[in-house]
Design a protein around this nucleic acid. Sequence first.
DNA 1: GTCTATATTACGATAGAC
DNA 2: GTCTATCGTAATATAGAC
Lengths: 188, 188
Amino acid sequence: MTQKEKILKAGAKLFRKQSYSATSMQDIADELSIKASSLYNHISSKQEILSELLLSNAEAFVKGMKDVKEAELSPTDKLKRIISIHVRLTVEDTNKMSLMTNEWKLLTEENKEIYLSHRSAYEKSLKSILKEAIKLGEIKDVNIDLSLFSILSTLRWLYSWYDRNRDISPIDLEIILFKNLIEGIVTK
Amino acid sequence: MTQKEKILKAGAKLFRKQSYSATSMQDIADELSIKASSLYNHISSKQEILSELLLSNAEAFVKGMKDVKEAELSPTDKLKRIISIHVRLTVEDTNKMSLMTNEWKLLTEENKEIYLSHRSAYEKSLKSILKEAIKLGEIKDVNIDLSLFSILSTLRWLYSWYDRNRDISPIDLEIILFKNLIEGIVTK
DNA sequence: GTCTATATTACGATAGAC
DNA sequence: GTCTATCGTAATATAGAC
């Protein structure tokens, strides 16, 4: 791991624990047993730590969604794949996932705009998959906005559940999430 | 509204928008068109603003849960009542609800302990209602921890959905939430 | 109840030696 | 690549006049 990667990792850990604004460069430097000024040899600002963490993860989601959209799958199977993306990225790094849910507000205006445009593109794609599933009769004709919101709420908070249930395998997690989120509203 | 209430209201608004740590007493004072030092005639610290907001809401949830537990209702009807509590408190003040989900980390150790003990008592009560519902066959024999987590995720993020759908009546909101969260997993 | 003035501390970031 | 030293700024909070 490069020194920059170590800084990003320490940042993610501390930003999650005590929020971005309440974390000082001192705190991050202490975590790596160096002086705060030494951080600036690897990153140009505290904001850069946050934006690198958030934007790289946002891009991973957008990329994953692109693959799903292009796949030859039924809407229901696409939903399974989307759950799988969330599980994979959550298992990979719960701290980063926590920041995506809670700390994006602290991005500068410019970075926030990029982040939110990724997020709404992602939500729009998921919504059109849900619509398609309803059209094909794979899912009940529910309040689509609330269902979308409900599914995303659970997937966005998955990191906190996973931290307390790390013994479960990603595959099993995908299965019970699907049952819980989708089969609940599937026809019949 | 007393001056103290105005301060709490402005605090909730700003803490939600830009987080607790990134909000200065200056910011709150500006919102009320007074000087920052004047705030201290009504509150003793910035932390007091946060803790009053969070602990009063946490107590409202605990009180609501107590009433539900003591009521002579089926587990399913109890779940309906619990959804109703969340809807009521969300409709009352989405800013406060946002803080409960996102800003509790910034409570001092002492206050955080009180807050988290309220929260886990609440979760424990909800879990035992779910268990009872399964025992009586009102709900499928699901992964109870994940269902609990999934229901709470949606209810805790309801404030953000409600802010974008303020035209819906509380009653209708309760009904579609119940359909989405509970009927989905009810037997048959 | 609000103001001005101020004490005290901490922060992000830079310059320059090693 | 890390260090010491430091600049400039902004934060919470208090004291005391009006």
